[in-house]
Amino acid sequence: MAREIVLDTETTGFDPRTGDRLIEVGCIELLDLLPTGRTFHRFVNPERSIPADAIKVHGITDEKVKDAPKFHEIVDDLMDFVGDAQMIAHNAAFDRNFIDFELNRCGRPITGEPRWIDTLKLAQTRFPGMPNSLDALCKRYKVSLVERTLHGALIDARLLAEVYLELRGGKERVLDLSSAVSGRGPGGRIEVAAYGARPRPLAPRSTEAEQAAHVAFLASVLKDQSLWQAHGVTFLEIPATQPA
């Protein structure tokens, strides 16, 4: 099963190299493009003040995060949740820069560009020259924005998970007649029950008299013997996939 993490961040500004810091991170776990129900969400104390322009975007104030843990206090939980999964973000370079900056400050290995899938680039390939913000894609794919009055990491990650599914081919992509989702196991993981061969063939619905009439009809139409009889197949042996 392909495991992916849809991730979004909120920050104090645009560039960690000029002193901006992470203040919120939200993650959604996907297995084979389906949300498992497992999420990760933390507010983070940025150890600096949050500019008014940033507050207008996400509504996160200094007061809201003053007692939140610092990044080095959540890094283990975050990276345990992410594991070795591919990470998905909209304008991924932005989120990656902040995550990798914070990881580097903690002396941890950075994630690096190859681990990230950028939904903005996917959208620009599919809809060249069109608006491809997360809001625009939600409207295009009729993903409800009713929850979203301000930007929020977990809310945006949920919206992006739905958009990502559409960008990957829509809900039809997960329709696979070879398997079916049967429920969730421990930890919210999706368990799949595969359809195999029928363990016990269905009994024929025709009566013995109807079967005999059928054989007699074939004998009257083909004076010598029917094609099925020529190959040693009786009425009862006709495979279910063959037309009767």
Rank of each mutant, 00 (worst) to 15 (best):
V6R: 01
L7H: 00
E10Q: 14
G13R: 05
F14P: 07
R17E: 08
T18H: 12
D20M: 01
I23V: 12
I23D: 06
V25F: 02
I28N: 00
L31V: 10
G37A: 07
R42F: 04
N45V: 03
N45Y: 00
N45C: 02
E47Q: 14
R48Q: 05
S49H: 11
A52R: 06
H58T: 07
I60L: 01
F71C: 03
I74G: 12
D76Q: 02
D77R: 05
D77G: 12
F81V: 10
G83I: 00
A85C: 12
Q86I: 06
A92V: 09
A93V: 15
A93W: 04
F94N: 07
R96D: 03
F98D: 02
C106T: 08
C106P: 15
G112T: 13
D118I: 07
D118E: 05
L120K: 02
Q124W: 05
S133M: 06
L134H: 06
L134K: 14
D135W: 04
R140Q: 02
S144R: 07
V146I: 15
V146A: 14
T149C: 03
L154S: 09
D156P: 13
A157Q: 01
L160V: 03
V163R: 00
Y164D: 07
L165N: 14
G170C: 00
E172S: 09
D176K: 04
L177S: 12
S178C: 11
S179K: 15
S182Q: 07
G185Y: 04
G185C: 05
P186V: 02
E191V: 04
E191R: 08
V192H: 05
Y195E: 14
G196E: 01
A197N: 10
A197H: 03
R205A: 03
Q211A: 15
A212E: 10
L218G: 01
A219F: 01
V221L: 14
L222T: 08
L227R: 10
L236D: 15
I238W: 06
A240R: 01
